[in-house]
Design a binder for these strands. Sequence first.
RNA 1: GACUCAAUAGCUCAGCUGGUAGAGCACAUCCCUUUUAAGGAUGGGGUCCUGGGUUCGAGCCCCAGUUGAGUCACCA
Length: 573
Amino acid sequence: MNNLELSEQEIIRRKSLEELRKLGIDPYPAEEYKTTHHSTDIKEQFNEEENNLQDVVIAGRIMSRRIMGKASFAEIQDSEGRIQIYLNRDELCPGEDKTLYNTVFKKLLDIGDFIGIKGSVFKTQMGEITVEAKELTVLSKSLRPLPIVKEKDGKVYDAFSDPEMRYRQRYVDLVVNPEVRETFKKRTLLIQTIRNFFNSFGYLEVETPVLQPIPGGAAASPFVTHHNALNIPLYLRIANELYLKRLIVGGYEGVYEFSRNFRNEGMDRTHNPEFTALEIYVAYKDYNWMMDFTAKMVEEVAMALHGKTEVQVGDRIIDFKTPYPKVTMTDAIKEHTGFDISGMNEDQLREVCDKLDIEYDDSMGKGKLIDAIFGEKCEHHYIQPTFITDYPVEMSPLCKKHRENPELTERFELFVNGHELANAYSELNDPIDQRERFEEQVKLLEKGDDEAMYIDYDFLRALEYGMPPTSGMGIGIDRLTMLMTNSPSIQDVLFFPQMKPEKKPEKDGKEKFIELGIPEAWIPVIQKAGFLTVKALKEANPNKLHQDICGLNKKFKMGLKNPSKEDVAGWIA
RNA sequence: GACUCAAUAGCUCAGCUGGUAGAGCACAUCCCUUUUAAGGAUGGGGUCCUGGGUUCGAGCCCCAGUUGAGUCACCA
């Protein structure tokens, strides 16, 4: 057995595994293990006077052990939480044979192993509700030691906190950090709340293509792939907007989708290459209706997760109680910069940018310039939920023109904590206007704006058949979850955030070493000494190599016959 | 992409001007009675991220790289 790559603790656990098998105990049994209670049920239901719960079965992972001669305490963690168990040698092993306690529990089980306990509930002198074990079943042996996190009066000791390890080995993070499990439960509850809210209106949850021939509906850089049978490029969707609108054309009154979108752009605390957006489209509505609907939805989510509308986010309290104030983009800019941009042309806007010390470049049209002013000077002021409305037409190629001012669109964004959270329109359903707007986008493309949209002719064809007046809204589920769970980073609300691949050191197979005349038994020793490839080995100092591997042989009690210096020199000559 | 910071035992972290690598938890052996971030005794465990350089001597200083975190830029 090659144990050189394992830590001491891993070797000990593998030995324990073998010992269990020798005792006739299967460390990975196949049978169903029927439990009667979760840890939390027992803690809630046990009543000392009634002396109830005298026959319970629980299962979970051993998270701590305190062994004192013929009595021990341990904590078992199941999906709901932890509960203490008490093991008394003579209760667990009433007969002559004390192996189950003395050997199996005390020596062969470890923190991290899954066990099942059948027993009765009581309260210790310390007042802790505890299950006294009458039977113990090994359910699964753990071969790697878990990080040990201890907690006393809410204070956490030796937290498992390294972000890289937490994200790469999320399973470990989930085992030892209960608040992480809680965050993801909240994420699911959030999605369920929104789904129930929409369903209560009779809107239909749908699925639309992830692989799209034209990546439309947003301004972003897509991932490209290739379909072999069709021999065409396909794009992973950056949005699902244009497909959902086709469904409104088809006659549904309301459709929504939780859409996993993919954008081939930078990654940081608020951006992951794949993320979840929610989009909903409702016929015969406008953006005023959608504002109230959105606010109601967000309020409902806050209530479902927290039981109240106030939510702690960082060092602020954000109150999601409706209604939310509505501010037009022009008024917002006027308020925070003193400039009234209404009716300004591109040159005048550039002047404003100069005066406000905002950078811009020549590819930026009116829309982007206004966006830059807003982003720089206004956005961060909107901490409490606020709707910003009536965006310039250049910024919103899929949005209906404002009913009172053709320079503007009927669009709003919901800002919370200084960031955009949701985006919504009275959807553009005039096919001729839509065609012109797409053509404007193409001009922007030619001007060098690499985010401008491509023309989706099938979508235009759909609009030409007629789409009822419709309002649509999109919201970032990850970012909403970040707000609602007070998580500062998107990685904290994604189970498996995208990471750079772990790189493994290059390592030659054993054939290559055998070719040099090295006995097979010595190969792991050589690799343990740091020579993973034949190439590296060839550059080694033969004297040092000889000393190193003989030393390892002794240290790990390998019992191999040491080669001579000449042998070693011969291998690498 | 730029800058700043970090990487030491399974985990959390110390480590003095540059002089033989440390603690707590975990692990092993032993003692022990309903204990609680259990206690006591003893012990094992390290490629100090990698590669160069300076030096009699590098965990520490210098250079380059890897990975991560943060700030900014870009991006919703």
